[in-house]
């Protein structure tokens, strides 16, 4: 080991300090939300600025959020979209990616046609008219699932990963009489579990976080996904569904706590699974970064 100079050590310490600062700046907002959601609402409203810990302890906001039927229906709708949307995503992406990893005459033109859509799009209005007017999917879950069936980026990641499977394996399966569907199901997919995990996560997180298409196409509140309910509460400041019996004076107080508790209820699933799944997410970027 080469001896470390003074400037070396100075650099290491500054670097570590910067990274610690980054950790604090990244995590504090979440810490703040947790603490504020547990706080007593009257003390919270009188407080300004950073929180070291909860101000008092009160779970009333959580009770109100969990009693809000919109949160429940939002979760239900989001789970529906997540399950069926991701299933369709996987089906179409896996078949397409496998096809594109094989040799056939139209492979190149199809690939070019797909890549082109990454750089040039028809835009919001024609897409809206297509889904809403011509396909007639307004106010239907189909509008949230089918138009998002394939992400080009994910398709390319999956194709890249399929291409790494040795040709000899596929050839020998063919000699044994397997068809292409059989090869995909029995050889390629079982060898590609990591990339399938990546796909489930990317598509799943995409469905979980998506709100804009629901705002465009869904009119019935019963069908709102969670993110759209959250938008009403957090961005449009509408907590009325959880404050029906409140006297005027109390409203402002509990409103803040309700907002924080809502964030917690909607984000906890992600915060819980994230540390365990993080390496899969990263893997996706790594595969995607391999240049063609």
């Amino acid at each position: 080991m080469i001896k470390r100079t003074v400037s070396d050590r100075l650099f290491d310490w500054t670097n570590a300090a910067l990274m610690l600062l980054l950790i604090v700046v990244t995590l504090y907002p979440f810490y703040h939300v947790i603490m504020a959601s547990l706080s007593d609402s009257n003390r919270l409203i009188a407080h300004q600025g950073l929180l070291a810990g909860p101000l008092g302890f009160n779970l009333e906001a959580y009770e109100r959020v969990l009693a809000n039927p919109n949160i429940f229906s939002g979760y239900r709708n989001t789970l529906f979209i997540l399950v069926f949307g991701t299933a369709l995503n996987l089906l179409l992406t896996a078949m397409g990616a496998y096809g594109l990893s094989r040799k056939f005459m139209l492979r190149k033109p199809i690939m070019i046609g797909i890549i082109f859509t990454m750089y040039f799009t028809g835009g919001l209005i024609p897409t809206y008219l297509l889904v809403n007017n011509w396909l007639g999917w307004g106010n239907s879950m189909l509008a949230l699932i089918v138009p998002a069936a394939i992400s080009t980026w994910n398709l390319i990641i999956m194709r890249t990963s399929f291409e790494a499977i040795p040709e000899s394996l596929i050839e020998s399966a063919k000699i044994d009489g397997s068809g292409e569907f059989g090869i995909l199901l029995r050889i390629v997919l079982p060898l590609s579990m990591p990339v399938i995990a990546v796909m489930i996560l990317y598509y799943g997180v995409g469905h979980w976080n998506s709100w804009f298409n629901a705002m465009l196409f869904i009119r019935d509140r019963e069908l709102f996904p969670l993110q759209l309910i959250l938008r009403e509460i957090l961005v449009q400041n509408d907590t009325s569904a959880m404050q029906l019996g409140d006297a005027m004076g109390d409203q402002q107080g509990i409103r803040e706590s309700i907002k924080y508790a809502t964030i917690m209820v909607a984000t906890l699933p992600i915060l819980f699974v994230y540390p365990f799944l993080q390496r899969f997410f990263v893997k996706g970027v790594m595969i995607g970064a391999v240049k063609e």
């Binding site: 993110q227 938008r231 961005v235 984000t267 993080q278």
Partner: peptide, 13 residues
């Protein structure tokens, strides 16, 4: 791990 986290939080939140 910490620095990747905000990427996964929904835009609405």
């Amino acid at each position: 791990t910490v620095s990747y986290l905000p990427h996964f939080i929904s835009l609405v939140v």
